[in-house]
């Protein structure tokens, strides 16, 4: 399989040039960073773009940095770098887990965290973790910029003249712990179901806030609000975790597709929600020790 002929290929050296090219070619161009989702789609002829703008040579987008009270992840941060970053591991483990769970070693070396979000597929590992953290995507165009919550990302939300430059979220407060777990058909596959959870604990170990996000469902990852309510304002016990799993399986609508049946997906939700909450709890206990 080969992509259709690509008429123009640009490798801009700075963001201004990239934004100008993006505005000029708009709908007929695609941005490429890792290309680990884009190239397979172009080769399968599910996508064709006459113009490619390669972001790999842009400066200042390769880092994970703290700006004011936020964590900012640049558009060229590869999954491997995100998975290995000690600060993310410390404060936003769900995202480290997701970056470590996505694809395989070669894909993680090349694919980017933001690229995975911009592909906007429901079966993404990154999206549930980013949503649990309350992350936003910074979208720039030639004359301005805006922040869009990851929850709002779906096809058509990103204007064809915009470039996603950063993923940002407020640095979680001390006492916040999170995790992400998935089940795919094989280790490197897209998740059939992936679950991210984030819990804020007070000093006594009581949860004061809980977020549970289920990915692998259509059309986009969903918040399991009732399940989260069962583990809020309580001391977490294994019985409660099971209850949360039951609640999530009951409230999240699942779909049949070529990867799995709706029933199997619901069963995975029932099983993964307690596991991921147990992981969050284990991380809290490890730090409390």
């Amino acid at each position: 399989m080969y992509p259709k002929p690509i008429e123009r290929y640009f490798a801009p050296r700075n963001l201004e040039e990239a934004l100008r090219l993006r505005a000029e070619y708009a709908a007929e161009c695609a941005l490429i960073a890792g290309g680990q989702s884009l190239l397979p789609r172009m080769k399968a002829r599910l996508a064709s773009h006459r113009t490619l703008i390669d972001l790999n040579h842009l400066e200042n987008l390769t880092g994970i940095e703290s700006v004011m009270d936020c964590v900012r992840i640049g558009a060229l941060v590869r999954h491997r770098a995100a998975a290995a970053d000690p600060r993310l591991r410390q404060t936003a483990s769900a995202l480290s887990d997701a970056a470590q769970a996505i694809g395989d070693l070669q894909v993680r070396n090349r694919g980017t965290v933001i690229g995975s979000l911009c592909e906007g597929e429901p079966a993404s590992d990154i999206a549930p973790a980013a949503i649990a953290l309350g992350a936003h995507l910074r979208l720039k165009h030639t004359v301005g910029e805006r922040l869009v919550p990851v929850t709002a990302l779906k096809s058509g939300v990103i204007d064809p003249r915009e470039v996603a430059t950063h993923l940002e979220f407020v640095t979680p407060t001390p006492g916040t712990f999170s995790a992400y777990l998935k089940v795919g058909r094989a280790a490197q596959d897209r998740p059939i179901i992936g679950v991210a959870a984030l819990v804020v604990f007070d000093r006594e170990g009581r949860s004061t806030r809980a977020v549970i996000v289920v990915g692998g469902v259509h059309p986009a990852p969903q918040l399991a609000l009732r399940a989260a309510a069962t583990v809020k304002d309580v001391l977490l016990t294994s019985r409660l975790l099971t209850t949360a799993g039951e609640a999530a399986a009951a409230e999240i609508a699942t779909q049949d597709d070529t990867m799995a049946s709706a029933q199997y997906r619901s069963q995975l939700i029932r099983s993964l929600v307690p596991q991921v909450l147990a992981q969050v709890l284990a991380r809290f206990r490890q730090e409390a020790r």
């Binding site: 399989m1 680990q36 190239l39 070669q106 894909v107 090349r110």
Partner: peptide
């Protein structure tokens, strides 16, 4: 399609699938 991994090479120090790169 990037499925088999047999085309993996090391590019600037990192293993990548050479069919998933132009």
């Amino acid at each position: 399609e990037g499925r088999c991994g047999t085309c993996t090479v090391v590019v600037d120090g990192y293993a990548v699938k050479s069919c998933l790169m132009l």
